[in-house]
Amino acid sequence: MTTLAAADSHLRGRHTKGRLFSWLLGAMTCFGIVMLLLLLVQVLRQGASWLRPEFLTRVASRVPEKAGVLPALVGSIYTIVITALFAVPVGVAAAIYLEEFAPRNRLTRIIEVNIANLAGVPAIIYGLLGLALFVRLLHLQRSLVSGALTLGILVLPVIIIASREAIRAVPSSLRQAALAVGATRWQTVWHHVLPAALPGVLTSVILALSRAIGEAAPLIVIGASAYVPFCPRKLTDSFTALPIQIFTWAGLPDPKFQNVAAAGIIVLLALLLTMNAAAVIIRQRAGSKLKW
């Protein structure tokens, strides 16, 4: 009979191994979190005292004490709204088509592979595309709308891929239930598949927009201005955005501008956190009604 009380040395060895790995994994997790915290602490230490109400209402200035973030903040918000208006309908529609309607053939497979590849293309390449297409070919100038559309194209693959995942996760039994009572494909998608996929789609949208709002490279390529002393009013106005403003400040010789840049980073982070919080809330609202 095997005694249950005293574990043999082999079993003890296995337990030790298990404990070792859980420690290792924990340590890796801590490493990531600690790095993030260090970054956050550093930025807060540098920038918190510079983050006064005037900072949010003033325009950029040569004097660090008078510098403000308003045009960049407004530019970023406008950009992201236009990006969303363009990329979300197009991306979600493409995801629905590929997942629910497209015939499964070689052409769709080629399209799928290419979308996946596009998601991995560096942002600066999208900037060049935006420069050629929107600024030059469509004569939209170095404007707000050019920047927003460029960012829209940049995040489109992300939205498509993640939305498809969300749509695919909807159980096929739900589709069959709808079809069996005489619904058309479209009614099935609109009334059942999309509502069920909504939390996942929203997550993908917010993740994509969060990426877009932090991008500086493509905007620099299409020529967002470094110094804009006014808020954009029209789609064709020249503009700046938070990442560009931060980048510009960080490159200025006066060391006080490092603090201004840090304050700008805090504003950008706050904006990002707000967007993510909104996503969580919307997702929970939508998700609470759907369970199976």
């Binding site: 039994s173 239930a177 709808a178 069996a180 009572v181 619904a183 759907l290």
Partner: peptide, 28 residues
């Protein structure tokens, strides 16, 4: 499918109210 209905192996009600589970088919 309007004339020939179907009940599936695993119960698959819509994630809607009991009322709307029944009303949806005739409505659409």
């Amino acid at each position: 499918r309007r004339c020939i209905g179907m009940v599936f192996q695993k119960p698959n009600p819509f994630p809607k109210s009991i009322y709307n589970n029944i009303a949806w088919g005739p409505l659409i």
